[in-house]
């Protein structure tokens, strides 16, 4: 996996969303992507895994042991869940160091950036920070392992 893959995946999403010229269709597609998200085990829908972002609840579970970034997540709001699906599609399977440093600028091109504002109260902004944090920790861990 490389930066190329992350960019490719992001571009794929941008192209998919570009197929719709109506916002309703874009949102419908977003909601559909959320519905296809791999389910999060009920055991992880707890406060320990909850991202505190106000109105919609978001749970994020880092899946250990793969060496690359791997998350499962869920939300009780459909639009938030769709946004999660997009994010995970891009970051899952990527090298941790890459994810820790990405700015996820592609969201701008899908015209969904507005949802990522820290004041949007959907928890997405906090989730991205949490993803970067986990990825950063994972990257540091693998560096230490390499040193040994």
């Amino acid at each position: 996996m490389s930066a190329q893959d992350l960019t490719t995946k992001a571009n794929e999403l941008v192209e998919e969303f570009a197929l719709f010229d109506d916002w309703m269709d874009r949102y419908q597609y977003l909601i559909d992507l959320g519905k296809e998200l791999e389910p999060l085990d009920e055991a992880f829908r707890t406060d320990d895994y909850r991202i505190h972002g106000c109105q919609s609840q978001v749970w994020l579970q880092p899946v250990p042991g793969t060496g690359t970034v791997s998350f499962k997540a869920d939300s009780d709001a459909q639009i938030t869940k769709g946004l999660i699906a997009i994010l995970l599609r891009v970051v899952n399977g990527q090298p941790p160091a890459l994810v820790a440093g990405t700015d996820l600028a592609f969201l701008d091109q899908i015209e969904l950036k507005e949802h990522l504002s820290p004041t949007r109260k959907n928890g997405l902004d906090s989730m991205i920070r949490q993803i970067r944090l986990y990825a950063g920790a994972l990257a540091a861990q693998s560096t230490r392992t390499d040193d040994n």
Binding site: W23, M24, Y27, Q55, S56, D76, A77, Q78, I79, T80, H115, K121, N122
Partner: peptide, 13 residues
């Protein structure tokens, strides 16, 4: 069963 956040977001559009 729609989440109020989803409803508000769609109405905002």
């Amino acid at each position: 069963n729609a989440h109020p956040y989803d409803v508000g977001t769609v109405l905002d559009r």
